[in-house]
C-alpha cells in the first residue's frame, strides 16, 4: 500500500504519479489521505490499480477512469466518475450532481444518495445508486443502465435514448418521452447481475423499469408539446 497525503502534496503531483505507472506496475494499491474536498483526485487513471481515498472529495473524482478501481470512503462533489470508460468507481457516502455523466463503460456505485442529473448523457456505463437520485437523472442517456434502490426526483429520463432505468422506490415524475416498461425475465436477469456486481442486496423483482417511448427521435408536429 502506497500512502499519499494530500495535505502534504498537490493533487496534480498525485495524479502525475498515478498516470506515469506502466501497464505491468507492481504499485497497484494506493491510499489517499486528507483529500479535504480537493478536485480531480484520481482522475484520468488508465491502469488496473486500486486507489482508496479516505475522506470527502471535491469535483470530478475518478473522472475518465479506465481499468482502475477507485474507492472513496466519504462524500463526493460534482461529476464523480464522469466519462468513465471502464473499471469500477465507488463512493460510500453521498454524491453531488452529474454522477457518471456521459460514462461509456465500467461501473459507478454510490452507496448513499446522488444529486441531480445523475447519469446524464450516459453512453454505456452502469450507474448504481443505493439511495435516491435528484431531478433530471438520466437526461438524454443513450446506453447503459441506471439502477436506483431509493427514489428518483422529477423528470427522470427526460429525452431518453436507449439507456435502461430501474427504480425500486417512487419516481417524482417522468421526463419527456420516458415511460414505464415491462420487466421481462431478460431484464430481471440483467438487473440481478448488475446488483451482484455492485454488491447490492436487493430483489430485482422489487424494481420498475423505465425507458424511452422513442417518440422524440425525429421531429413530428404531433409531438410538438413534448419538446
Amino acid at each position: 500500500m502506497i500512502d499519499v497525503d494530500i495535505a502534504g502534496t498537490k493533487v496534480r503531483a498525485l495524479n502525475q504519479r498515478l498516470h506515469a505507472l506502466p501497464k505491468d506496475t507492481n504499485e497497484r494499491a494506493w491510499r489517499v489521505l486528507n483529500p479535504m474536498g480537493a478536485h480531480s483526485i484520481a482522475a484520468g487513471l488508465t491502469q488496473p490499480i486500486e486507489v482508496r481515498v479516505e475522506g470527502h472529495v471535491g469535483y470530478y473524482c475518478a473522472g475518465m477512469n479506465k481499468e482502475a478501481t477507485v474507492l472513496v470512503d466519504g462524500h463526493c462533489g460534482w461529476g464523480f466518475g464522469e466519462n468513465i470508460m471502464s473499471g469500477l468507481v465507488r463512493v460510500t457516502g453521498n454524491a453531488s450532481q452529474a454522477v457518471g455523466a456521459s460514462g461509456h463503460g465500467g461501473m459507478v456505485v454510490v452507496d448513499g444518495d446522488a444529486g441531480a442529473r445523475c447519469a446524464i448523457g450516459l453512453k454505456g456505463a452502469d450507474v448504481m445508486v443505493g439511495g435516491s437520485v435528484g431531478h433530471f437523472s438520466a437526461f438524454m442517456a443513450q446506453a447503459g443502465n441506471l439502477v436506483v434502490l431509493g427514489d428518483a426526483g422529477d423528470n427522470l429520463g427526460d429525452s431518453l435514448y436507449e439507456a435502461r432505468l430501474y427504480v425500486r422506490g417512487s419516481v417524482a415524475s417522468l421526463g419527456a418521452d420516458c415511460v414505464e416498461k415491462k420487466m421481462t425475465p431478460h431484464h430481471l436477469a440483467k438487473l440481478e447481475r448488475l446488483l451482484a456486481k455492485a454488491g447490492m442486496n436487493a430483489d430485482p423483482k422489487s424494481f420498475r423499469r423505465y425507458g424511452s417511448a422513442r417518440k422524440l427521435y425525429n421531429f413530428h408536429a404531433d409531438h410538438a408539446d413534448a419538446y
Binding site: M36, G37, A38, H39, H56, G58, Y59, H75, G77, N94, S96, G115
Partner: peptide
C-alpha cells in the same frame, strides 16, 4: 459553494453534511 471551504472547520469530521 464547495466542501473544501468547510474542510478546515473544527469538528467537521463529525458534522452532518448535505446539499
Amino acid at each position: 459553494s464547495e466542501y473544501r471551504a468547510l474542510a478546515h472547520l473544527p469538528g467537521v469530521d463529525k458534522a452532518t453534511i448535505w446539499e
